[in-house]
Write a protein that binds this DNA or RNA. Structure first.
Length: 369
DNA sequence: AAGACGTGGGC
DNA sequence: TGCCCAAGTCT
């Protein structure tokens, strides 16, 4: 295997010892490190996907307090689960997590499986999460190759493959299988990630503080700032959206649940529609949308504001109006009229939370509950 | 393989 | 301000 030419003169045993000793001494005190409960390891690994540690900590504590076990999450109301994830992003993660937890509860007697083939069949568990759960919760020497690991190893071994390419992950998995500690795969994998998080950072790595500096080829060559090679993605598309915060005569707010798949699936939001024309004004587009969707006439009062919301792959250019509607809307699974207090029980995306905040600031005391 | 899928922080 | 990033997975 040509990948292994990277480690022909690599001191594996000494590298493992240096890395693991450093991790034992310097690891951060994080809530998911209190024990190795496979369920908690699992929840933390899902939350940490593409998400910063500091962001995850309060979500993790709250989530485990509400859903402390496989059984608790398996039986939980999806609405409450989504609410516990509100603001974390990538919401399909939590729907897949609950779905997989139900599968473990029903098909594995509530025990997280400990083989790569079984665990990787669960929804939301890909190659990285398979390796992280198996190594951290069960001490099984499987590679857990994430962005940190690719960055750290590309520097240590001077690997110039583009880490943005899907196939590059496999190169690192082959190498990890050769160099992973069979005695302590948990600390080996976590050590590599921790090193990437606090020492071998994307920009300006702290090489002088690095416990494995003497093993690092790019440090020897002075190329650590050029690695890893990572091609960048395309810029995002802009989508104009018009939104209405609509209040009934008895001060209820109209909210709408998003579809079961796609962007922000199953989250709640204020009525909105993409503005596909530049002939009609956003206000007119909104009025027609409300008439078609809810069979009621809205009296759009004034502009609440206009702002941008940037996602990873697109940007919403939002125009937000406030308005009044007659109290004759038929509620159903996806359309509800809620009081101000009730509204806080529903999970909203951040963009619509911002809208609600603006609305409350503007309306202030006018809306008494 | 490449694009969908969120958000907040750092420079 | 704008761009890149942060413990990926699914289609």
């Amino acid at each position: 295997m040509k990948e292994l030419t990277y480690i022909e003169d690599f001191l594996i045993q000494q590298f493992q010892d240096d890395l693991i000793n450093w991790f034992e001494k310097e690891q951060r005190d994080l809530p998911w490190r209190a024990d190795q409960d496979p369920y908690k390891v699992w929840v933390s690994e899902i939350m940490l996907q593409q998400t910063r540690v500091d962001t995850v900590i309060p979500y993790f504590n709250n989530f485990i307090a509400q859903f402390p076990s496989i059984e608790a999450l398996a039986h939980a109301d999806e609405e409450k689960v989504l609410k516990a994830w509100e603001g974390l992003g990538y919401y399909s993660r939590v729907r897949n997590l609950q779905s997989a937890v139900k599968e473990v509860h029903e098909s594995y007697g509530g025990i997280v499986p400990n083989t790569p083939s079984e665990i990787s069949k669960l929804k939301g568990i890909g190659p990285y999460t398979t390796g992280s759960i198996l190594s951290i919760a069960y001490g099984i020497p499987e590679p857990a190759v994430d962005g940190n690991v690719m960055r750290v190893l590309s520097r240590i071994l001077s690997i110039w493959d583009d880490i943005a390419k899907p196939k590059t992950r496999k190169v690192f998995e082959v190498i990890i299988r050769e160099i992973i500690s069979k005695e302590n795969p948990s600390f080996f994998n976590q050590g590599l990630m921790e090193l990437g998080a606090i020492v071998c950072t994307p920009t300006s790595p702290s090489c002088l503080l690095c416990p494995v500096r003497e093993h690092c080829k790019s440090y020897m060559e002075g190329t650590q700032a050029e690695l890893p090679v990572k091609t960048k993605k395309n810029s995002t598309k802009e989508v104009p959206i018009v939104v209405g915060v609509l209040v009934t005569n008895d001060n209820k707010i109209l909210i709408h649940k998003r579809p079961d798949s796609g962007l922000l699936a199953r989250l709640w939001e204020f009525p909105n529609v993409e503005v596909l024309t530049d002939v009609k004004t956003p206000k007119v587009v909104l009025q027609e949308f409300i008439k078609d969707s809810y069979h009621t006439t809205a009296h759009i009062e004034e502009l609440l504001g206009a702002f941008q919301h940037v996602f990873s792959h697109l940007t919403w250019n939002m125009t937000v109006y406030e308005g009044r509607i007659e109290n004759e809307i038929t509620e159903n699974e996806r359309v509800k009229l809620v009081s101000i207090e009730e509204l806080s029980q529903y999970a909203f995306s951040v963009s619509h939370q911002k809208i609600w905040k603006q609305f409350q600031e503007k309306m202030g005391s006018q809306l008494l509950s």
